[in-house]
Design a protein around this nucleic acid. Structure first.
Length: 904
RNA sequence: GCCCAGGUGGUGGAAUAGGUAGACACGCGGGACUUAAAAUCCCGUGGCCAGCAAUGGCCGUACGGGUUCGAUUCCCGUCCCGGGCACCA
């Protein structure tokens, strides 16, 4: 074998590890660059070829930046707390720490084989006490701070206590009352809230852990339940989280996702007088369409609203209670299934429209959410489709407010047109009427401008074992943080990982789960806790004094390039930004934003293969003939299929049922069908990177994953294309070796033609990598190597820069060649070659010449010629005369360097 | 329903401050070397039509219009696929 990738890769991976090649230190003499991958959850299934896609891209970029003279921080670790290990523990009794440790070992082995340039001395695991000490520390900081809306930042809770004291609202309170009061302000606080409760998992889930009323992990039903939970006051940061998006180098679609998630809307709060017949109240509602107030024909309360009790009249009491009961019984899933089915009940009370004085009924309906605005709305059926549907169902009046709009079939929701039926607003456009209406209610003292956000506080408790324990104990029932020197509060041993018989979380099973005799919090933190500040820990992973030291933070600052999946858009990426901003507020870190540039790598999908079994037989019919039979489509392991041709012998051995399978072939072969699906075990389409490395080598794998297509795009993995890349590497190897596989390199001066090939590649590779267009660089490299091998070039002057340019992509082969060339140091310490136009540039440009847009011939014109000289040259050319056939030229269009078009 | 991204050969994909569409690779067909296989190398490969041939013509970047000497690229409309949000007043 000529190019022995197995030996080469083994050799250099060992060399890098032994020489600590990729370990970095803060070095103020060099510019820093921080490249981060979203760290993985180490699942039991190991890595498939889809997982390393982003890691390969970030590794290439890291290696490139090192060649460009940057001090590159490129770390890796594990997001190691999580449900699968815990579920496994419940089933088997195996401690999640053991499962996790084993899975991590497997991940590490698989990653090492691909030749990543991680600084493993900085590895973090979220489940290790040395790490989660700082997660707990941050939680205590959040507990001890409040958000001051005047200064727009977090401040120590003492400043708030001082205010209360000054206002005389403090000293008279009991300790318990003081604690309850402060809970309303703390950034990390405990509060009663409706949560997604999953009985089967025995825990609370975040919204992004629930899909269509089922848990993402396990697919169990999830119901709404009111519970006292730890929460993080993320909503306080809404405006900053929104505004600071503008300065980030993220894709527009991802920023848009976050903007929608934060959901800023500007409107007004307006006060309506409401009366249940005996008592009158002021009820505040929120609207973005103050202009439509003349069309209010009823009001609606959320079923959970506190107004429901006050406004339900004696006559309606039975009906309302019945309705509330029905609403409560419904699971989230049923509510979703019944979307747009109108339900509701009349409360018996009436509200008075503050502008018209009209009396309108107050209804109660599920379509109004308690968590947004004030949990009560003014309904304008003519101009809101939800109000419209409700009005139609319950036969409530609909008053159109915009000239010429037709509301007989549907509402007119657009914010355009001229107002009518609207008192002093009549005649204005909607755009004028909105501020005019708000100005009016403000001047009358019955309302004010108001901005609302959809972003909710994050629920931070999970009733699980495998997470960070809260460093909180209950002194006389008052939640109290532990002193910092008590951290880390380590996870205790428990006999089982299930909730207790009385429904308490698993930590309640721990013996002596107390602090100074007081009970300790039994819930644990959610998955996003550990992943919210891990990028800071990498900067200074062994610091015992703090999460990150000041010097390290000042040097590394924040992540320059973050690569990971788009599935974290509204979870991790919001929480980490929030967490970072909090640490910034308390003066702990020097940057407001954690991730400057973000790239979302696409998913690599599986390419599944099918065989077609003739029903009730053990015969399998080839793809083209399957329509002649009644068949069942069956997934077949892609590892026994090559180029869609089934290895029939391997198939018989695959499963006992198929041992005596018969085949109906076409042209002597069994052709399989295929489909692009998610890569998963159940579809038998998982391709393991270890096997690819075994067969083709890590360099081939790395390059092929890039060659597959643009990084951001989802694309199917198809192993058959890998041969082309592998062939390229062999060709590259042969540039440097003779027919006996002996290394040979010439010290001769390079020719202009050779230099041209090299310089074109350098130019392309550099601009491509800066644009993260890795796939086209691979193509350019193939072209360059083809041309050089045609030129039989084996000169150092060409081949040395060439191998440096390619080294980020194929580091093992590059190291080997670099060493063979006589260098003592790793190629990682080389510098990226400069593009120098050393070859004699051609002195003429070849123009394609078009006639009325049709390409006819080419013309060489001096490079220095300007537009008029080019035009003169083409007019004088005899071929022009020939194609004109006597017609007169109307216009000659010359695009310098590109094209000439003659219009006649 | 709303928001975002996209639609190019048999396949993955190149090329967009408007300028020879299909780079590069896979697959396929043919050939060379070989006892044979593997490996390697060479030639062809969007469709249709004409020609013994070199070659020439027409059509082609989801569909229909528009702007332009010239549109995969810009504008308007339609259809389709993917992603996100989904009673947020």
């Amino acid at each position: 074998m000529d190019y022995n990738f197995l030996d080469i890769e083994k050799k250099w991976q060992a060399y890098w590890a032994e020489h600590h090649t990729f370990e970095v230190k803060t070095d103020p003499s060099k510019p820093k660059y921080y490249v981060l991958d979203m760290f993985p959850y180490p699942s039991g299934a190991g890595l498939h070829v889809g997982h390393p896609l982003g890691y390969i891209a970030s590794d290439i970029y890291s290696r490139y930046k090192r060649l460009k003279g940057f001090n590159v921080l490129h770390p890796m670790g594990y997001d190691a707390f999580g449900l699968p290990a815990e579920q496994y523990a419940i089933q088997t009794g195996q401690h999640p720490a053991i499962t996790t440790r084993d899975n991590i070992a497997r991940y590490r082995q698989q990653m090492d084989r691909i030749g990543f340039s991680y600084d493993w001395s900085r590895e973090v695991r979220t489940c290790s006490p040395e790490y989660y000490k700082w997660t707990q520390w941050a939680f205590i900081q959040m507990f001890n701070h409040w958000y001051n809306p005047e200064t727009n930042k977090a401040e120590p809770i003492d400043t708030l206590v001082a205010r209360f004291k000054a206002e005389g609202r403090w000293d008279s309170l009991s300790e318990k009352q003081q604690s309850d009061l402060l809970m309303n302000y703390r950034i990390a606080y405990q509060g009663e809230t409706a949560v997604n409760w999953c009985p089967q998992l025995g825990t609370v889930l975040a919204n992004d852990e629930v899909k269509e009323g089922l848990s993402i992990r396990g697919g169990f039903p999830v119901e709404q339940k009111k519970m006292k939970q730890w929460q993080l006051r993320v909503s306080a940061y809404s405006e900053r989280l929104l505004a600071d998006l503008d300065g980030l180098d993220w894709t527009e679609s991802l920023k848009e996702m976050q903007r929608n998630w934060i959901g800023k809307s500007q409107g007004a709060e307006i006060v309506f007088k409401v009366s249940n017949g005996s008592e009158e109240y002021d009820m505040t509602i929120f609207t973005t369409r103050a202009d439509t107030i003349f069309g209010v024909t009823f009001m609606v309360l959320a079923p959970e609203s506190e107004w429901v009790d006050k406004l339900t009249t004696a006559e309606q009491k039975a009906a309302v209670e019945e309705y509330l009961l029905q609403a409560k019984k419904k699971t989230e899933r049923e509510r979703i299934a019944e979307t747009r089915k109108c339900t509701g009940v009349f409360s018996g009370s009436y509200a008075v429209n503050p502008l018209t004085g009209d009396k309108v009924p107050v209804w109660i309906s599920e379509y109004v959410l308690s968590g947004y605005g004030t949990g009560a709305i003014m309904a304008v059926p003519a101009h809101d489709s939800r109000d419209y549907a409700f009005a139609r169902t319950f036969n409530l009046p609909i008053i159109p407010l915009i000239e010429g709009c037709d509301v007989s079939q549907e509402s007119f929701d657009a914010k355009e047109g001229i107002m009518c039926n609207s008192g002093f607003l009549t005649g204005m456009s909607v755009k004028e009427a909105i501020p005019a209406a708000i100005d009016y209610v403000e001047s009358k003292g019955i309302g004010k401008r108001k901005v609302n956000y959809r972003l909710r506080d994050a629920i931070f408790s999970r009733q699980r074992y495998w997470g960070e324990p809260f460093p909180i104990y209950y002194k006389n029932g008052i939640p109290t943080p532990m002193p910092l020197d008590a951290l880390p509060l380590e996870l205790p041993q428990v006999d089982k990982f299930l909730p207790t018989e009385s429904g308490e979380p698993p930590l309640a099973r721990a013996k002596n789960w107390t602090y100074e005799g007081w009970p300790v919090e039994t819930s644990t933190m959610p998955g996003f806790a550990g992943s919210s500040a891990y990028y800071l820990r990498y900067m200074d992973p062994h610091n015992n004094e703090g999460l990150v030291g000041r010097e390290a933070d000042n040097y590394w600052r924040n992540v320059d390039l973050y690569i990971g999946g788009t599935e974290h858009a509204t979870g991790h990426l919001i929480y980490a930004r929030f967490w970072n901003k909090f640490l910034y507020d308390i003066g702990y870190v020097c940057e407001q934003e954690p991730f400057r540039k973000l790239i979302n790598q696409g998913m690599i999908q599986g390419r599944s293969n099918f065989v077609y079994r003739v029903k009730n037989t053990n015969k399998f019919v080839s793809y083209a003939l399957k329509d002649q039979y009644d068949t069942t489509e069956i997934h077949v392991d892609v590892n026994i299929v090559s180029n869609d041709r089934l290895d029939t012998e391997a198939f018989r051995k695959w499963r006992p049922d198929y041992a005596d399978a018969e085949f109906i072939l076409e042209d002597g072969e069994y052709v399989c069908g295929y489909a692009v699906e998610k890569m998963s075990k159940s579809m038998f389409n998982v391709v393991n990177p270890d096997l690819v490395c075994e067969k083709y080598g890590a360099d081939t794998l790395r390059m092929y994953e890039m060659f597959l297509g643009p990084l951001e795009q989802s694309k199917p993995w198809d192993t058959k294309g890998i041969d082309g890349v592998h062939r390229f590497l062999r060709k590259l190897w042969r540039l440097y070796t003779d027919s006996e596989n002996k290394f040979c390199i010439s010290e001769e001066k390079a020719s202009p033609a050779e230099l041209k090939v090299l310089h074109r590649l350098i130019g392309k590779a550099q601009s491509d990598i800066e644009n993260f267009s890795f796939n086209t660089t691979v193509s350019a490299a193939m072209i360059a190597v083809n041309e050089l091998s045609e030129l039989k070039c084996c000169k150092r002057e060409i081949l040395e820069p060439l191998i440096i340019v390619l080294s980020p992509y194929v580091p093992h082969i590059a190291e080997e060649i670099w060493q063979q060339m006589g260098h003592g140091e790793s190629i990682s310490f080389a510098s990226f070659p400069e593009y120098v136009e050393a070859y004699t540039a051609e002195d003429s440009v070849t123009y394609p010449v078009q006639f009325n847009g049709k390409m006819r011939f080419t013309l060489d014109v001096a490079k220095t010629a300007d537009r008029t000289e080019v035009e003169a040259a083409v007019r004088a050319n005899p071929a022009t005369e020939k194609y004109l056939q006597g017609a007169a030229i109307r216009k000659v269009i010359v695009v310098p360097g590109k094209i000439i078009n003659i219009v006649y």
